[in-house]
Simulated assay, not measured.
Amino acid sequence: MAELRDGFTRAFQKYLANPVMRLVPMQTLLETTGRRSGQPRRTPLGGRRTGNTFWFVSEFGERSQYIRNIQADPRVRVRLRGRWHSGTAHLLPEDDAHARLRELPQFNSFGVRTFGTSLLTVRVDLDG
C-alpha cells in the first residue's frame, strides 16, 4: 500500500503540482544539477532560512531525484522570496527529521509528514 501511495504522490507532484508551483514567483525552489543530464533541475519545496542556512526535509529521502542530484553534486541554488542564493547542500540522516519538521512552516510540514515515507533532513549552507 505504501508503494502505491508513493507512486501516486510522486506522479501528482511531477505532472501536476510541481509544474504549477514552479510558476509561482514567491514559491521556494531548490535548483540542483541533473546528475545525468548536467541540466538545472528545479523542485518546489518548503523550508526555513535561519541566518545563512536553509533547512528542509525530503519526504522520500535518498529515493528523491533531487537528493540523488545533491549526492552527485552538492552545489545548489535556492530561490527564497523571489531571490536566488547559491549554497552547498548537506544530507543529515542522523538528524531527527520529525523534530525538524516541527521547526519548519507547518503547511508544507503537514504534507511531508502525511505523504513522506523516508524522511531526510537537508541543510543548505548559503554563500555569503
Rank of each mutant, 00 (worst) to 15 (best):
residue 87 G to T: 01
residue 32 T to I: 05
residue 106 Q to M: 07
residue 120 L to V: 02
residue 72 A to Y: 06
residue 22 R to M: 15
residue 95 D to C: 11
residue 86 S to T: 02
residue 32 T to L: 10
residue 18 N to V: 01
residue 64 S to E: 15
residue 108 N to P: 13
residue 10 R to G: 00
residue 39 Q to H: 06
residue 20 V to Y: 14
residue 75 R to L: 04
residue 29 L to N: 04
residue 77 R to W: 12
residue 83 R to A: 10
residue 78 V to Y: 08
residue 7 G to A: 04
residue 53 T to F: 15
residue 8 F to W: 15
residue 57 V to S: 02
residue 117 T to P: 08
residue 104 L to G: 06
residue 103 E to T: 03
residue 110 F to S: 08
residue 83 R to E: 05
residue 81 R to N: 15
residue 120 L to P: 00
residue 25 P to S: 09
residue 42 R to L: 13
residue 66 Y to R: 06
residue 91 L to P: 02
residue 65 Q to H: 13
residue 14 K to E: 10
residue 114 T to R: 15
residue 71 Q to A: 04
residue 86 S to E: 13
residue 81 R to S: 04
residue 103 E to I: 01
residue 122 V to T: 04
residue 87 G to Y: 02
residue 40 P to S: 10
residue 84 W to Q: 01
residue 60 F to D: 09
residue 55 W to C: 00
residue 72 A to V: 07
residue 75 R to G: 09
residue 76 V to T: 07
residue 25 P to Y: 12
residue 23 L to A: 14
residue 54 F to T: 00
residue 10 R to E: 07
residue 7 G to V: 03
residue 60 F to P: 01
residue 16 L to T: 09
residue 11 A to M: 05
residue 50 T to I: 11
residue 42 R to P: 05
residue 71 Q to P: 13
residue 55 W to G: 05
residue 88 T to N: 10
residue 114 T to M: 13
residue 76 V to F: 09
residue 38 G to P: 07
residue 64 S to V: 00
residue 17 A to D: 04
residue 10 R to C: 04
residue 103 E to L: 09
residue 78 V to D: 05
residue 53 T to I: 14
residue 124 V to P: 01
residue 92 L to T: 00
residue 39 Q to K: 13
residue 102 R to E: 12
residue 48 R to A: 06
residue 62 E to N: 03
residue 13 Q to N: 15
residue 35 R to E: 00
residue 54 F to E: 01
residue 54 F to P: 00
residue 27 Q to Y: 00
residue 97 A to M: 11
residue 20 V to E: 07
residue 105 P to R: 03
residue 98 H to F: 01
residue 40 P to W: 13
residue 58 S to I: 00
